[in-house]
Design a protein around this nucleic acid. Structure first.
Lengths: 172, 172
DNA sequence: CCGTTATGTCAGTTACGTTGACATATTAAT
DNA sequence: ATTAATATGTCAACGTAACTGACATAACGG
């Protein structure tokens, strides 16, 4: 086979090829992964940014704005537009913090949870299918490689990943 | 441990948690992966779109515009802006097709290859480190899961992934 | 010759990010 | 008690990269 002979003759080329392939896998996977939700979002006049906000607020109920900004890594002005739309339309609620009254603690309303479920339904299916077809061992490898590609601060977010929702550590 | 007890008590919750975690891994990995190249691109007044074009033209020398559009999945108007800048600045060359003179076949110039190397240097390092730390078996799992998440047409692009560059099949 | 294809371009729009400057309420510190 | 720092919000202007729709040109193919 051409591939095998190439493997033997030029292993360095294949290493390079392997890396390039990884880059492309990431590109295609991310795009295919977000494609369907994007279509749904259009019906609400929302964009991908709204989905991200709903997702992370749903995952971190009671999160404050600073911590959300740290996760999303955008400016407060950018978040403001998206967040105020979500609040206006009743998908997210803001409550003044108890210990620190400067904070606006964010939670997703039931209406918001419903939207989140709709938006992520296809994504969950995609991942679930990929996980199921690949098998538990492959999933472990997938997680290992993905975690290895994250920056230190993002990796820290997964340290307590198996704690129940309410106990998850805020910040990063 | 909290995680193990939770696992036993509520396996369905953990399944959901596992899927959500996969979604976030993809989000963080993609962002961290592209962050550094984005900074470099600014110095050329280019954006991520330019990187994508250079990458895929470099990978598919002599590709025509339609096939490139099929890979990128953007409109020709969107590609036009980016591509004409890259041609203007001497990173990409267009040659009229030989069999079909309507086609503009695209190749990356030496200057373009140099830029591509610079841009992907950090990305290659990120992947290489993640691969090395995770081990060969994990990498196989990673690839399996990622491929499983792709749509059929994107998955087809990886059918001949181990053929040398010049022999890779065009289109999808 | 004519319909289709490959490509390009003009014009207008949208989503989502940016910077900079400033305002307000609240907390923390000297 | 005053002052500095923090958390948040907002106004304004801007840039990139995507989009749609419409039209133009050149070349291919029957």
């Amino acid at each position: 086979m051409a591939d095998i002979s190439t493997r033997k003759v030029n292993p360095l080329f294949l290493r390079e090829e392997e890396l390039r392939q990884g880059m492309e896998l990431l590109f295609y996977a991310y795009r295919d992964f977000t494609a369907e939700a994007d279509l749904l979002l259009e019906q609400y006049n929302f964009g991908r940014a709204h989905h991200r906000v709903i997702h992370f607020v749903s995952r971190n109920p009671g999160i404050n704005v600073s911590d959300l900004l740290a996760i999303l890594q955008i400016t407060k002005q950018s978040l403001s537009r998206v967040l105020s739309q979500l609040v206006r339309d009743g998908f997210i609620e803001q409550k003044t913090g108890i210990q620190d009254r400067r904070q606006r603690l964010l939670t997703v309303t039931e209406k918001g949870e419903e939207l989140e479920r709709k938006l992520s339904e296809n994504q969950r299916t995609l991942i679930a299918n990929a996980y199921r077809e690949a098998g538990a061992e492959a999933v472990e490898g997938f997680r290992k490689v993905m975690l290895g590609m994250l920056g230190a601060s993002d990796r820290a977010r997964f340290d307590d990943e198996f704690l129940p929702n309410g106990l998850r550590r805020r910040l990063g």
